[in-house]
Design a protein around this nucleic acid. Structure first.
Length: 360
DNA sequence: GAGCCGTGGCC
DNA sequence: TGGCCAAGGCT
């Protein structure tokens, strides 16, 4: 696609807007200050598919517990998973820990000031490598995230649907990038997408690139970016088991190290599948129970939506005598320690549904 | 390329 | 209310 000179977006206009509207964020250096590559990296991993609002508290807790990459590399993976619980996409936490160890082992504890070397680190893909290179080291990397995709496809009214449009978007983003201030330009593009060029109801009247924007000129800005239709989300069903001792301790397990919720803590559950029938009697639902007990079914269901399927969980609860041994692979966790477990949200819902800690 | 991989907020 | 969305990466 050719870009006419008179409609080409001027990077200076965007940088001037950025200087006036620069947001203060926990991981962002003050103007004139040098960015800390560790903080830039940590924030970029947390911000993958995650809102600023959700990531903020996690970032501050991680920084307090792990003030530098060396402290994170030296800590057990379980500590990182516990701190990550609730933020989702848990492979990020596993890769975060692996990346810290790689930086400690391969790079002497300092992040490399090189996009290609950053890209080779666990959990660091094309976007994150470019973002760290630009923001932490002010290298001229082309940073393309979901914000930049939206801004660029609107600027050029790009009809190609995502994800096929990615190479063209990268080329166009490189066309409008300035030689000076690559880090500020990258953050300005993302801030513009996050605050002005939003998915719905973009504030074009406040946009420094309103004039050269092809989609705005046509009045079609909200229809970009074009996207391929999404696959439907199937429903799976299953049974979760809540087992409590008289002292309130609950039976928990650790999940397989990889895959869905990999490495995290869970309540015992049966298989999750579309053909599980939750209308069966309790005696049948208890077929996959972790131990023999007098099960009672908690009324209602726990529902949870994952990225690629929805889940409906029936909850069977039981009280077992003091001294009941934990079955193989499971462990007793005191009620007071439940909050410190690496429990993903779906299992916190199960605990709440079963009335964890409630005396009857 | 496409499926897998969480969660909470929004309208 | 449910579909969509958020600073993606891995296989």
């Amino acid at each position: 696609m050719a870009v006419a000179a008179e409609t080409r977006p001027d990077p200076a206009a965007l940088l001037a807007w950025y200087d006036r509207h620069r947001r203060r964020l926990p991981w962002r250096a003050e103007p004139g200050e040098r960015a800390d590559p560790y903080r830039v990296w940590l924030s970029e991993i947390m911000l993958q598919q995650t809102t600023v609002k959700a990531a903020g508290p996690y970032f501050l807790r991680f920084l307090e517990r792990f003030p530098d990459v060396g402290s994170l590399a030296a800590a057990p993976l379980a500590d990182a998973l516990r701190l990550w619980a609730g933020l989702g996409y848990y492979s990020r936490a596993r890769n975060l820990h692996a990346c810290a160890q790689a930086v400690a082992a391969r790079h002497g504890g300092r992040f490399p000031a090189c996009e290609a070397e950053l890209l080779a680190l666990p959990g660091v893909g094309p976007y994150t490598a470019a973002a760290i290179a630009a923001i932490a080291f002010d290298l001229p990397a082309i940073v393309v995230d979901g914000n930049v995709e939206r801004v660029v496809t609107r600027l050029f009214a790009l009809e190609t649907p995502l994800p096929a449009a990615k190479p063209e978007i990268r080329r166009l983003a490189g066309l409008i990038a300035p030689e000076a201030r690559p880090g500020d330009f990258a953050q300005a593009m993302m801030d513009l997408g996050a605050t002005i060029c939003t998915p719905r109801r973009p504030a074009c009247a406040l946009c420094p690139w309103s004039e050269p924007c092809a989609a705005r000129r046509a009045g079609t800005q909200e229809t970009f970016p074009r996207k391929a239709p999404k696959a439907e989300r199937p429903t799976r069903r299953g049974v979760a088991f809540w087992v409590e001792r008289p002292d309130g301790a609950a039976l928990l397990r650790s999940r397989a190290p990889k895959g869905l919720l990999g490495g995290m803590t869970e309540t015992p559950t049966g298989r999750w599948a579309a053909d599980v029938d939750l209308t069966l009697p309790v005696s049948a639902l208890a077929a996959e129970a972790p131990l023999a007990a007098e099960w009672r079914r908690t009324p209602g269901l726990v529902t949870h939506v994952f990225s690629h399927f929805a889940l409906e969980l029936a909850v069977l609860a039981a009280r077992v005598p003091a001294g009941t041994p934990a079955p193989a692979g499971a462990r007793w966790v005191a009620a007071a320690e439940l909050a410190n477990e690496a429990l993903p949200s779906v299992f916190r819902k199960v605990a709440a549904h079963a009335g964890a800690g409630r005396r009857s």
